[in-house]
Nucleic acid binder design. Structure first.
Ligand SMILES: [Zn+2]
Ligand SMILES: [Zn+2]
Ligand SMILES: [Zn+2]
Ligand SMILES: [Zn+2]
Lengths: 148, 148
DNA sequence: GCTAAAACCTACAGTCACTAGAGCTTCAAG
DNA sequence: CTTGAAGCTCTAGTGACTGTAGGTTTTAGC
C-alpha cells in the first residue's frame, strides 16, 4: 500500500498500536527518528514499519523493551551467531514459565477459597478468613519472583 | 512476641515486606497511621500487624490495592452478607484465568521458536524470523487484555 | 553520661511501558 | 479559502512499589 510517506496515524493503524506509543518508541531511541515534512510532521516508510512490527510482535510475546532493543541490534549482524538471540528468547520463556507456575497456584488457592461453603455472613466468609491467615492455604503460592 | 510497641523494621521483618512498603500503605490510607514515640518514630501493635498480614496475603494472591481496600472495609461489617467479598475474589480468579490463558499461548509460541533448527547464523535464526513475521506463529497469542 | 552504630524520619525521584490531556499547528478535501 | 481531522510538543499520571539524600532518634556498650 502507500508505504512511501505514511503519516503516524496510518502507521499506527497498520501495525495495531496507538500513535503515542510510536512517538514514545522514538523518544527512547527504540525506533529511529522519522523524516519530517516541511511542517514537522513525521512520515514513515517500509523500513520503519518492519521495525515497528517486530517490536510490537515481541511485546505481544512479553519481551521487555531492553530485550527488544538488544534483539533489534542483533538483526543487523546477519553473519553472527544467533546464540545471543536464542538466549534472550530462552530467558523470556523461563520468565513466562515462572509466571504461569505462580498464577496456577494462585488460581488453585482462589478456587479453594470460593468453593467452600460460605455461611453468608462476613464473619464466616471463607474468602476473608483465608486472606487473614495463610495457614488456611494449602499451596505455597508465595511470590519468590514474578508478581500479580 | 513483643507486639506491644514494634518499630517499623521489626514489623516489616515479621510480615516479610520492606519498610518503605509499610510507609507507602500508610501514605495512601490503606493502613491507618501508627502511634508515634516522642521522637516521631512509628510504633505498631497487634492490630496493625493483622491488617498488614491481610494486605500482604491478598497482594501475594494478586489482588490489586483498590480491591484490598474494599475487602478491608468489608471486614468491619461482620453481620453483612459476604456476597461482595466473594464477588471481588471471583473477579480476581477470572483475571488470573485470563492471564494464565495468555501466558500459555505465549509459552507455546516461544517453545516453537526455540525448538526449530537454527542455522546458527542470525540471517537464518528462527527466533528473529518469527518476531519479524507473526504469520510464522500458529497460535493467536495476541493480547486482548492482560499483558506481559 | 557519652559515643557510635543501627534504625528511623521526610521528601522526592525513578521504575516499566505506556496513556491522557492541554494548547497549538499543519494537512488535505471541497 | 475554509474547515475539520490529524498532527505537534510538553507535561503529568498509571500501579505498586523501590531507592536515595540528608538528617534525627534510639539503643547498647563503656
Ligand atoms: Zn464468602
Ligand atoms: Zn496463602
Ligand atoms: Zn537462532
Ligand atoms: Zn505471533
Amino acid at each position: 500500500m502507500s508505504d512511501v510517506a505514511m503519516p503516524i496515524g496510518q502507521l499506527a493503524r497498520s501495525v495495531g498500536c496507538n500513535v503515542q506509543t510510536i512517538r514514545y518508541y522514538e523518544q527512547i531511541g527504540l525506533l529511529p527518528p522519522a523524516r519530517r515534512t516541511a511542517g514537522a510532521q513525521r512520515r514513515y516508510g517500509a523500513a520503519h514499519r518492519q521495525k515497528l512490527t517486530f517490536i510490537r510482535h515481541a511485546r505481544e510475546l512479553g519481551f521487555p523493551l531492553p530485550a527488544i532493543r538488544e534483539l533489534l541490534a542483533l538483526v543487523h549482524e546477519q553473519d553472527s551467531d544467533c546464540a545471543r538471540a536464542d538466549g534472550i528468547a530462552r530467558r523470556q520463556l523461563e520468565a513466562v514459565n515462572r509466571r504461569v507456575a505462580m498464577l496456577m497456584s494462585l488460581r488453585t488457592e482462589l478456587e479453594r477459597m470460593l468453593m467452600h461453603d460460605h455461611g453468608n455472613r462476613i464473619r464466616d466468609c471463607r474468602v476473608l478468613a483465608t486472606l487473614a491467615d495463610h495457614r488456611l492455604c494449602i499451596e505455597t503460592h508465595h511470590a519468590d519472583s514474578a508478581d500479580s
